[in-house]
Design a protein around this nucleic acid. Structure first.
Lengths: 124, 124
DNA sequence: GTTTTTAATTGAAATGATTACAAAGATAAT
DNA sequence: ATTATCTTTGTAATCATTTCAATTAAAAAC
């Protein structure tokens, strides 16, 4: 939990009890969780936690670049504390997201010469 | 429209006025449209069309393998009549999906030796 | 070609994830 | 200690999607 505190500071995120708890969970459970999974995991030991806070917290984390949001699961947004450039695939059988760490930038032949500029590439 | 009729049959989809109209739109507007975009485009010339029909139709098309559904846009499901293996990227500026045709199967180093079997790989 | 059966379409209501908002609580500054 | 600012919380609103039952259209049987 101390670690999470420090970790948040690295991304200029002011720590709070809730934020540290959420980050602690993310760092120790790399399961690309949904909002609900995060909420369900924390609420037993944090009965006052609100799901809205989880939404707010994750929005902040994404905005500050501490986590990335995946759109790979049509049903729910999923989050990844691993912000390195890597891919994902979604197993429809077990409904889980798995990492693909072998992707290389050259794999994407983007039309960068066109009228838009690339902000980010997600292989999710 | 005649073409769409024939096209649907190739995927064992029984054509109807609505289905042909939707497929005709998809074949001639390769913009990876949302349900709403399809509905909005067709309803002027098809006032009785229901949005539920568009949902039903797209579900059927996906099930029959005539189109693929993309999860790349967090807000809405998007559909692509191009069922060939290719990638996509989503421009947050213009909120449009673009194709990436240079992806190759080898780009994905999947852990096929594990306990799940891969049904499909989407780079979207 | 009319009747019967089956399938497709439709609109309204239900669901479920996410967002908006305003009040309550906690933290930081004075 | 007091005031101001930021965070958390619960409720209500929103929006995409699904469910469902009724209507309409199409296909099959006669």
């Amino acid at each position: 939990m101390l670690e999470s505190h420090q970790y948040l500071r690295q991304f200029s995120i002011k720590p709070s009890v809730q934020r540290s708890a959420v980050m602690h969970f993310l760092l120790n459970n790399r399961i690309h969780p949904t909002i609900d999974e995060i909420f369900m995991a924390l609420s037993p030991t944090m009965p006052t936690l609100s799901k809205t806070t989880v939404y707010n917290t994750m929005d902040l984390f994404v905005e500050k670049g501490a986590v990335q949001v995946l759109a790979i699961d049509e049903k729910n947004a999923r989050y990844d504390v691993d912000i390195s450039a890597h891919g994902h695939f979604f197993c429809k059988g077990c409904a889980k997201v798995y990492d693909i760490f072998d992707l290389k930038p050259e794999m994407f032949q983007l039309p960068v010469n066109e009228k838009f500029k690339i902000h980010a590439v997600e292989s999710s």
